[in-house]
Design a binder for these strands. Structure first.
Lengths: 212, 212
DNA sequence: ACAAAAATGTACTTGCCGGTACATTCTCAA
DNA sequence: TTGAGAATGTACCGGCAAGTACATTTTTGT
């Protein structure tokens, strides 16, 4: 019954014209990203964001059209952070050792976070996919990038003969991403890394069944 | 040793003392469940719930301590609905045909929903796991039940010789549930059933690798 | 029938939140 | 120096949502 906003702010003009302005704008996005990760989109007020960024609310509206625009920016920022957080392994998933190291890093990070927060992108996707077309579009792009990292590794392994030719890189990559997301959701719900480990181990083991 | 934490919502006294009261209470939970599925917890106001249930807000507070208690009730209600929605297959996952039928039903349902909403339990878990201990406890129980259905099927297949003895029912079941949740999240984000299909197919195919 | 208990309706409070208006301060280039 | 554009601060508005108070109607047990 909700009215889904049809207007898409294609590419919001960056209203920060000076280095100082850019820095302030970046502080706002950083603060918003951290708060959204902890409290969710609905749970994060712009007053909170302003306080965390040591900035008045008028500043937020000076640099962003509305809350939705700011959130979209948060998603692009978090996409970079999430992918960077999986380096160096995610760029080198062309051998089984890298897959294992990537898996271990993901599990360790959740352990250090005491299984809170889950995936910054998955959480936002879950909250906004059906109600914010702009955010959804950015999130689709984010997941595409993430998935491509997996697909690239799989493709290179096929080329190197480490995986058979009948391994479908695209759908396998999609399944791996789903395993990550589902594993993180169960991890933060059960407050245990076990479900994440089971999910990642299963998807990597399935990949291994395509070894020659 | 450890006292299994029962949610306050479940153990709290049901204040509906008459059939009429029970009916009203049930109407409230039903309306809340539907609205939460569409708009999320934060996006659902108690005024909306009251309007949908044709009930004053005082009624809601007559039957529930607060919003959180109502939501916990919604989770238990949705758990029943989600599991029932996967019948008859989910109770008979002791042969490959049932797994396929179960998978097809899940995909078809998302297709009919135009890939909106995702999993009613997963969405709530994502929103509340870190902020509402009561709801989290109920959700853990929900996921346990769901997973147990998978584990039961796997165990029966092992007993029947359709799966090898080294197939770990518990962790495989956990991986399947993660695949469902991750697949549904990507499904509703990408507005396509493809990621869900890839995820479910991969996890079932992995199961099959444990066939003798 | 009739009190007691349960169910229900109306109206209100309080606080927060997205968004706006507008004045003021800062910065830099001509 | 100065003035125009950029950055920032303060104050406010309207609406909504959780939760409360309390009166009224309906049902139930005896």
């Amino acid at each position: 019954m909700s009215i889904i906003p049809t207007s898409r702010a294609v590419s919001a003009p960056n209203r920060a014209k000076t280095p100082k302005g850019q820095a302030t704008r970046a502080r706002i996005v950083d603060a918003a990203a951290a708060l959204v990760f902890e409290e969710g989109v609905a749970g994060t007020s712009l007053d909170d964001v302003g306080a965390a960024a040591r900035v008045g609310k008028s500043q937020i509206y000076h640099y962003f059209a509305d809350k939705s625009s700011l959130i979209s920016e948060v998603v692009t920022r978090q996409t970079i952070a999430v992918l960077a957080g999986q380096e160096p392994h995610i760029s080198r998933l062309d051998n089984w050792g890298s897959w294992a190291a990537w898996r271990d890093q993901l599990v360790r990070e959740q352990d250090e976070n005491h299984c809170t927060g889950g995936c910054p992108l998955g959480s936002i996707a879950n909250e906004l996919a059906d109600t914010d077309e702009d955010a959804r579009a950015v999130l689709v792009d984010s997941f595409d990038q993430w998935e491509r990292a997996f697909a690239d590794g799989i493709t290179r392994m096929k080329a190197a003969g480490a995986l058979r030719a009948d391994a479908d890189a695209a759908s396998l990559a999609s399944a791996v991403l789903a395993a990550v997301q589902g594993g993180l959701l169960l991890c933060k719900t059960r407050k245990s890394t076990k479900p994440l480990e089971a999910s990642l181990d299963a998807s990597i083991a399935y990949l291994r069944t395509f070894a020659p």
